[in-house]
Design a protein around this nucleic acid. Structure first.
Lengths: 211, 211
DNA sequence: TGTGTGACTATATTGTCAATTCGTCACTCA
DNA sequence: TGAGTGACGAATTGACAATATAGTCACACA
């Protein structure tokens, strides 16, 4: 099991073609980031991206299987921001419960910021989840890894109970993270997110702590 | 604060016109239930319902403000089924933690059943949430009431901790219920719902129990 | 006065067809 | 051989006219 390092931005592997490092790939990603951010995924065409760089659309497909693969790259960048932050928190030298509490707040804050300030990127994440893109699954798995890391340390340090299955418990914790960042849930309830995050984390942490 | 009784089906009040008890209203609701269940809310027209009963569309509006109000009535019926069941569980003479655990499982099961066997009704609930229908809010509030009832009894009986705010804690618990019945979350993840419900409820119950 | 509606308006949706988009393939050229 | 593309077919989208739908109102009638 490979542990995410503190500087990893989660690169998608699904749908990528050609060399991973290439100027044109970087240009496509840069153009896609700008266009998706401004026009949204659905309103941006592959031809828009090609034209922005000065290429034919056919050449885009030398690097990406499909428009979706470009979308997954941008989605991965986006989700990678919060994942990096969570990774830093998870690896900090602090009590496990503080780390977890801060993870809830952090993911809630970034998700809220993205909703209000990068709405079109928020929308891509929604599309990714609804369409079962691999990047969405990878992200979920990466968050679960971080939770496992923190909870396992909390258990080893005697902070957390050890009666329950580590994996099952962390699965449940990961589910509760959805409550503070899932795009659809954000849309339904715009207010009080950070407060909700605090309440949920308090409840979950009480469930984790040693009796 | 009025306590839901064990036999209450949650009637919507929003958008209802004319006498609450009326043959025509009942016919409209019956026709709507059948059409929405079969064709879905969006594909059913008010004219369909009127024709099914043998009325003009104008007459439907003597009983309901709008097509949405008809939708809220059916949605309310639908959500009322699970609410009745949760109410029975919440009022049973059993330890609070067992009641809560069973509430998670029950809502998960019914939601899953609705997803697989009444997909179009599942869709209406999705529309209701996405469009902020009053019935969706009422339902959320009703579930919270039941949780408050059970947790308060658990606290009074010495089963549950009393350090945290009752309301905040129950808010957080109600949020975790979304994980096992929210239509969008169900759609994203079709498998293992009941297992997830069990894991989440175990975590939450550990968070509620007295140290 | 309770039950019911035809006619109507504003808006939304649908149908049709041309235009665009996605993605591939065979090819060019330095 | 890496960098790049024009042409193409299938699917999707956009534009716009036609039609449908949601909802209202003044009225009818027993």
């Amino acid at each position: 099991m490979k542990k995410p390092t503190a500087e990893t931005v989660m690169p998608p592997t699904a749908g990528q073609r050609g060399p991973a490092e290439h100027d044109r790939r970087a240009q496509i990603i840069e153009a896609a980031d700008a266009y998706f951010r401004h026009y949204g995924y659905n309103k941006t065409t592959v031809a828009d991206l090609a034209k922005a760089i000065g290429l034919s659309t056919a050449y885009i497909y030398k690097f990406f299987d499909s428009k979706q693969a470009v979308g997954e790259a941008i989605c991965g960048k986006c989700l990678g921001i919060i994942l990096d932050e969570l990774t830093k928190i998870a690896h900090a030298k602090r009590p496990a419960d503080e780390r977890l509490a801060e993870m809830y707040i952090s993911i809630a804050r970034e998700s809220e910021r993205r909703f209000f300030h990068d709405r079109r990127l928020h929308d891509i994440i929604n599309i990714a989840r609804a369409s079962q893109w691999q990047i969405a699954k990878d992200h979920q798995a990466a968050v679960l890894e971080l939770i496992l890391h923190v909870v396992a340390e909390g258990r080893a340090a005697g902070e957390f109970e050890t009666d329950s299955s580590l994996f099952k418990t962390c699965n449940a914790v990961a589910e509760t993270f959805l409550l503070v960042w899932h795009p659809v849930l954000l849309e339904e309830r715009l207010d009080g997110l950070e407060e909700r995050a605090a309440e949920i984390s308090a409840l979950v942490l009480r469930g984790l702590r040693k009796k």
